[in-house]
Nucleic acid binder design. Structure first.
Length: 950
RNA sequence: GGGCGGUUAGCUCAGUCGGCUAGAGCGCUGCGUUGACAUCGCAGAGGUCACUGGUUCAAGUCCAGUAUCGCCCACCA
């Protein structure tokens, strides 16, 4: 692959700290211009591709934190697999988002004093397309800023020709299969958007309402009202005009004698009689045990009505006002009517009681208004068989859901699924591909004054793959297309294969279906994931992805869900401007575990930014040293500590590419100093762990471990230790510095792609194997088994760290001046596993800035005016002269001793336990024995130290 | 009504297969004008792992229950 060079000189005048704004855009262009986002290694017989189909953002939206999480996680997964050398495809796209987009544009029109009806259907659609023309590039630009390494050349849109064909074919196939039908059912109606909704588009919120106790009087044979009657409770008295019965439980003894009798509607202007029927759906515990049946405005009542052949009456109109059926209440808003009806009931003596009542009220997810259950002619998908298969593939683990617990949520939903209402009375979306014959369906086709058409009951839809021109029944050629559009999730549900060319048989489809991971928020598990699995299985005969990864919601610092009304929405791009995109990504990726919500705070973002800065500066140091070494070659023993051409602060020094470091890191044990062996082994340890974690989708933990390694081990210890060797010209640490920095950058790249690439571009010429690839995005990801762990070195260096920390602690305790020369006497315990066998690393870490000398024989140590420390692997003495206070020293050591004794007791108790010795694994027992022995030695040493003080 | 999740340091959160003294960041205390970095370094303080019981040689981790906060689903009007 030919690539253009990434030139950091484009990144002008970096001063001070890492400046993400100077780096991110050029790096992104560098990747994209060099084709890194296209699937790589597209060769037959290559590893199975790793594919992610991006959840398409709403075309009119702006990128919010949910998208930011999605893009971060998917990009990290994609980059990891790309670096593993697998062919990777990340396919981006956008969703036309029917109802959401239409409501945005209608809002714009409203501000101009218009409605969509003023424009008419065609002009309105044009208007939306214009708007989409503005927003579409905006949202893709935002995704680019995130660093998303997706294949923009394959960008899909749900209204593109291929997804359109996919919708058409799916609709026809479902119809011909009998899984799609049109009919009058009770549906959720949005009286503001004036459209039907599916069940999942209704959000239930607890609200305080009123529970009215209303008496429906019995009448005698002549129709005169009697004193007694049936008392029901209702929350919606305005629907009384639509009542068709009173239902009670068949086992309810209170009402059995009255079954079959009639009561009269207790409302002014109504003398309609309705029967008392029995239905086991009635809860005899609730209220009075009697339920008014209003099939036109309640789901349960509709079902009861069907069982008793009771025709629904529609008393609430599409716009939420009352219909002519409501008599004197006609034309009133449903809430207004509710109040007035209650008032009348009270005045007329039918209202027995009013109580407050907390109940769940359904609101339209989009408009927020209270949903009205209405009987309406709509298109439905019969989901029974689709759901059974969709449940099976998850139950059989053909599709794995992460986190695992979401599997139950999914299955429970699938097992209780109801028909899916897919028609929407909107203009923006996929027009329903059904036609009606003007002749045959003349009665069903209703044309309003403004020319708009609705299709009534009893129609005969013509559903074919190509637009029909003649009626198959009468041969007539006057056909009318269904005016409605499809639920936006119908086309999104096909996304997994419509983006790959389906219904055509394409190479992409063959190669990339099913995709590897579907990553999205758990909040759209039912909306989207469930539908994709149902429709994917139906169309393709195979589940659309192997794994579903569900991430949690991003909340504000107080843990609240972000919402416009709370005015607590955090703009990810604003945060990226402030802290850098890598910092934002790292924060989002490491901020939570799969499926758990996270809070985003400035403190966390700051922490990530500081980590990026640390990395930048650490790399700057390593690169600077490489540059100096190159300038002053050949003799590494004569390396000056300072660089002759010291790079200006903040700028990454550019080592001369023509003089890379000579040689690979020596492999043979014993050749390398301890700290080299240690850091290389630790690098491998982190590599192993990260591989394991990523395989389990634990991106957060993996990212944190890499951070801990780079900061807590590489920069804090290895780089510090390396400085002595750089200064005194011993065996150069540069090969190891280079190798570990390289490894760390590779490991971190999926989380922080920009800064790692920027640094790596400068490091690349120094790498021993720099010929294979010239961008980190395509470099090989470190693998388990790349190197052997060196557990001995890890143990021994750990002892070095203990010694160094102990010396620092003593110095801090006695407030030894930073520049003050101090000797340190160390007696390593060479009889202990992991003991320090060589004092050089201690010197290297410690002597960086604090003059000291190390004497490894305690016999030579002074006995007066000393501070000391006892470690499992060594004993330490520092002659501090007048700084030492006998009482303080005694207190310090006694505290240590107390601690040791406490732990020793615990260890001994454990070992004394017969069960432990018998049942615990031998290694664990041995470990405990060694610990006890260590502690005993430390106890003895401390006691003798304390004794010497007296 | 059913289901799920959280409860670990002052705060926000990790903690993988049950196993050494339970970790990080922020905050806090002390020291530090270190030739990568003050967006920093070093050292330190700070924990009954919500509670009760159980399993186990061993429990933050597994089981049962309780409390509490949150979420999802559901045809109690």
């Amino acid at each position: 692959m030919t690539t253009t060079e990434f030139d950091l000189s484009n990144v002008s005048n970096l001063t001070g700290a890492y400046d993400a704004s100077q780096v991110e855009d050029p790096i992104y262009a560098f990747w994209e211009d060099n084709g890194w986002f296209r699937p790589t290694g597209a060769v037959e017989g290559q590893p199975e591709p790793f594919t992610v189909i991006m959840p398409p953002p709403n075309v009119t939206g702006v990128l919010h934190l949910g998208h930011a999480v999605t893009l971060t996680i998917e990009d990290a997964l994609i980059r990891w697999h790309r670096m593993l050398g697998e062919p990777t495809l990340w396919l981006p796209g956008l969703d036309h988002a029917g109802i959401a987009t239409q409501s945005v544009v209608e809002g714009q029109l409203a501000r101009e004093g218009m409605t969509r009806h003023d424009l008419g259907r065609e002009a309105f659609e044009e208007r939306v397309w214009d708007w989409v023309g503005v927003t579409r590039p905006r949202i893709t630009a935002q995704a680019r800023r995130m660093g998303a390494s997706c294949d923009w050349e394959r960008t899909a849109f749900t209204l593109d020709p291929t997804p359109r064909d996919a919708v058409r074919k799916t609709f026809v196939d479902l119809f011909n299969d009998g899984k799609l039908y049109r009919g009058a059912r009770i549906i959720n109606w949005d009286p503001q958007m004036l459209t039907a909704l599916s069940d999942v588009e209704v959000e239930y919120r607890e609200e305080e309402g009123k529970l009215w106790h209303v008496r429906y009087p019995f009448v005698d044979e002549r129709g005169n009202e009697l004193e007694d009657g049936v008392v029901i409770v209702t929350t919606r008295p305005e629907t009384i005009p639509a009542d068709v019965a009173i239902a009670v439980h068949p086992d309810d003894e209170r009402w059995q004698p009255h079954l079959g009798r009639h009561v009269r509607l207790p409302l002014r202007g109504f003398d309609r009689l309705i029967p008392l029927v029995a239905d086991s759906a009635v809860d005899l515990e609730f209220g009075t045990g009697a339920l008014k049946i209003t099939p036109g405005h309640d789901q349960l009542d509709f079902e009861i009505g069907e069982r008793h052949n009771l025709e629904p009456i529609r008393v609430v109109d599409w716009d939420g006002t009352l219909t002519a059926e409501a008599g004197l209440y006609a034309g009133m808003d449903r809430n207004e009517a509710r109040t007035l009806v209650a008032q009348h009931l009270e005045q007329d003596g039918y209202l027995l009681k009013t109580e407050t009542h907390i109940h769940n009220v359904g609101h339209s997810q989009r408009s927020g208004v209270v949903v009205e259950p209405l009987v309406s002619n709509q298109w439905f998908v019969d989901t029974d068989e689709l759901a059974a298969e969709a449940a099976r593939v998850v139950r059989d683990d053909e599709v794995r859901i992460v986190p695992e617990r979401s599997k139950n949520v999914y299955l429970q939903w699938m097992d209780n699924i109801r028909p899916w209402c897919i028609s929407r009375q909107l203009w923006w979306g996929h027009r329903i591909p059904a036609w009606y014959c003007s002749a045959c369906d003349a009665d069903a086709i209703i044309t309003a004054d403004d020319g708009e058409i609705t299709i009534d009951e009893g129609s005969h839809p013509i559903v074919e793959l190509t637009d029909p021109t003649t009626c198959p029944t009468c041969g007539g050629s006057e056909l009318v297309q269904d005016p409605d559009v499809l639920d936006t999730w119908f086309s999104s549900g096909l996304w997994t294969h419509s983006t790959l060319g389906w219904p055509d048989t394409t190479d992409d489809l063959a190669r990339f279906y099913p995709s590897s991971v579907m990553e999205t928020g758990y909040d759209i598990l039912f909306f989207w994931v469930a539908r994709m699995i149902m429709l994917g299985c139906f169309n393709m005969g195979e589940a659309p992805f192997r794994t579903v990864y569900l991430h949690g919601l991003v909340r504000d610092a107080e843990g609240r869900k972000m919402s416009k009304s709370l005015d607590n929405v955090i703009d990810p791009l604003e945060k990226a401007d402030q802290y850098g995109m890598d910092a934002l990504r790292f924060t989002l990726a490491t901020g939570s575990t799969p499926g758990n919500d996270m809070r985003l705070t400035d403190e966390r973002l700051e922490g990530s930014r500081n980590f990026a800065n640390k990395l930048w500066n650490g790399a700057k140091f390593v690169l600077g040293e490489i540059a100096s070494a190159s300038d002053r070659s050949p003799s590494p023993r004569e390396l000056p500590y300072s660089s002759p051409r010291s790079p200006s602060q903040g700028e990454l020094p550019s080592p001369t590419p023509s003089s890379p470091l000579q040689g690979e890191v020596p492999k043979a044990e014993g050749v390398l100093p301890l700290e080299d062996r240690w850091i290389l082994s630790r690098l491998q340890a982190v590599t192993d762990s990260v591989d394991e974690l990523l395989t389990q989708f634990q991106l957060g933990e993996a990212g944190r471990q890499i951070q801990d390694f780079l900061r807590g081990e590489f920069f804090d210890w290895y780089v510090e230790a390396s400085k002595v060797r750089l200064r005194n010209g011993d065996l150069s640490p540069l090969p190891v510095l280079t190798k570990v920095l390289d490894g760390g950058l590779r490991l971190l790249h999926p989380w922080m792609p920009f800064i790692t690439e920027a640094i790596w571009q400068q490091l690349r010429p120094q790498l021993a194997d720099n010929n294979d690839v010239d961008a980190l995005i395509g470099a090989r990801y470190p693998q388990p088994g790349d190197a052997d762990r060196d557990l001995e070195a890890e143990a021994e260096f750990s002892a070095v760290q203990d010694v160094v920390t102990a010396v620092r602690q003593v110095r801090a305790d006695y407030k030894v001046q930073a520049g003050q020369f101090v000797e340190v006497y160390v007696r390593p315990r060479d009889d202990v596993v992991g003991a320090v066998t060589d004092s050089a690393p201690i010197i290297e870490v410690l002597s960086r800035s604090r003059p000291l000398s190390i004497v490894t024989d305690l016999a030579d140590a002074p006995t007066d005016q000393i501070a000391s420390a006892v470690l499992p692997t060594a004993e330490i003495i520092l002659p501090l002269g007048g700084l030492v206070d006998l009482g303080q020293e005694q207190a310090r050591l006694s505290k240590d001793l107390d601690n040791i004794i406490k732990r020793l007791k615990g260890a001994e108790a454990k070992l004394a336990n017969e069960g432990f010795r018998k049942k615990a694994p031998a290694a664990v027992v041995q470990q405990a024995e060694e610990l006890a022995a260590d502690l005993q030695r430390q106890q003895a040493d401390l006691e003798s130290r304390i004794g010497a003080l007296g």
